[in-house]
Write a protein that binds this DNA or RNA. Sequence first.
DNA 1: TTGTAAGCGTTATCAT
DNA 2: ATGATAACGCTTACAA
Lengths: 342, 342
Amino acid sequence: MQKDVTIYDIAKLLELSPATVSRALNDHPAISSSTKSLITSKAKEMGYRSNLFASNLRRQRTNTIGVIVPRLDSAFMSTVLAGMEKIANKSNYNLIISQSLESVKKEVANAKTMFDSRVDGLLVSLAADTDDLEHFNTFFRKGIPMILFDRVMPQKNCTNIVIDNVKAGYDATMHLLDQGCKQVMHVTGNIKRNVYADRLKGYKMALVDRGIPISDELIQLTDLTRQAGLDMASHIRQMASPPDGLFVVSDFCAASCMGALRQYGFAIPADIAVVGFNNDPVSQVVEPNLSTIHYPGQEMGEIAAQTLINHLNGLLHLNTTNSILLNYELIIRQSSQRTKAL
Amino acid sequence: MQKDVTIYDIAKLLELSPATVSRALNDHPAISSSTKSLITSKAKEMGYRSNLFASNLRRQRTNTIGVIVPRLDSAFMSTVLAGMEKIANKSNYNLIISQSLESVKKEVANAKTMFDSRVDGLLVSLAADTDDLEHFNTFFRKGIPMILFDRVMPQKNCTNIVIDNVKAGYDATMHLLDQGCKQVMHVTGNIKRNVYADRLKGYKMALVDRGIPISDELIQLTDLTRQAGLDMASHIRQMASPPDGLFVVSDFCAASCMGALRQYGFAIPADIAVVGFNNDPVSQVVEPNLSTIHYPGQEMGEIAAQTLINHLNGLLHLNTTNSILLNYELIIRQSSQRTKAL
DNA sequence: TTGTAAGCGTTATCAT
DNA sequence: ATGATAACGCTTACAA
């Protein structure tokens, strides 16, 4: 393992000072363009690479962004990460990614690791059972910017990036009602999390607006897994008066439920019209194709990363109550379409 | 932004030398356990955190592993990454993740970034059009270990982690033949990549073993997207004698194709029996459920990371021709099951 | 426009 | 068992 080339080596060869070499390599305005090109060409020739650690140590900056997500192995999250990586890469930032596996305990540990890695900023989507943001206090105290996305929580000095989940839930429910559903069941996740709580709120608002009473029996909290979908189907089958509309806030869970329902003899959408959430690839594959809310994952990742980087570069300030709302889209497919679309 | 606590601060307060503090914090054997506990408790009290950059600079080591994958937003890859993260996190390594988006050009850029970030080791799955590993020469020359997984290429001093794609392709094809298929079509990706080339090889071997002639018309190279699946269905529909078996090396593509085929009136598995690849979530959702090869993504990620870390810690040496083969599993579901399973 | 030199916070070597 | 000190490679006042 041969020794690395340093700016001192370049300086010596060119009979210049290390300072000049450093400045030239960083495109400092005070260096004449002739020596600049001299230095950069020599650097390339010698196979020089900058030592990020020395630079970070000196500048107290790392050009690294920490990302904490509930799970890496979800279709939605991987599009978000793809978006973040795209922007970070373009802006010369590295991404350190870790997953909380839906547990606060791991989230706390992840936060500590990120802190010790001295990330310049943090992008976080909260675990299912996170109650507060105290484990991020170290960041707040040091003024390290943090952006919450998707699974958020109101917090001073902390931008939230979300879609309007209330409205999305409202739209999905209203769509089912418009298709003639009289009894819409809502299957959701842990309502500690804004995304689920808000969609539930939207669901209720839609019912209220149509003068339909809200029934607790029609609101089901699950873990949104495949198994939860199957269980829900057998539950529905056993109901005295099964719902004729189903709004499940995860496509995979919805699709799994649909499959089981059909096996039990329910016709979709005739007996039960179904709407999912996320526009996961499965929604296009399941029969009948699943209506859903398109959730702009890639875009959300890009915007989260870009906003953070802009802030870090002083191009934008994350204010107290800043919150960014992304557009979603209700995609109507066969699973919920009883009448011809207009 | 207040100043960070350093080992000097601790040393001063305890009237010890920084060296002793450093050693104590690193659990050096030569430090008495009494001063050790004194120092660690004081450090905690003062909110000390070690400066990784200073440490990295000094030790010429980063505790960081670079990961380059073709795409982040794939179901398979996200399980791989989840596995890697799990192991890396446990072993105190950070992961820097980037995607090549299936282009060599970006892969080269990613490799450079990783090199400049001085990662201790590299985990790579190759882009679709990568022809050689020259852009990793800088790593080889410096003795930085690299492990290829899934999309691999033979290379000195570079462990490959794969499943036996030839055998998997063989098994899938043989299964279709066992179900009575006379004409099996094979839909695959860029055969520059081992995974696709090998599965094709397995497909051919199965045909040969059964004395069935290999027909170029039945071997289709595509990009394995949803659209490719749809296109393939309409192609099949127009064939003079359509195949009665279909082996597609991606579940999502297979499922998309199946949906379209059914719309065209093909019965599955009666008219065409279908087998996919990867055991993607969609395979359990599509109707009829898709037979597939279970590809152990999480496990592959864990093993790749663990192998690399073991090497970095001197617990294991990556030899010249080291190659790790993981088990796969043929999962038979309704899409290919014509006879009752034994 | 370029040079000097101090310092970022560790860790490793050599003493004691 | 502990201490003194010199790197590690870079950036940045300050000086020239």
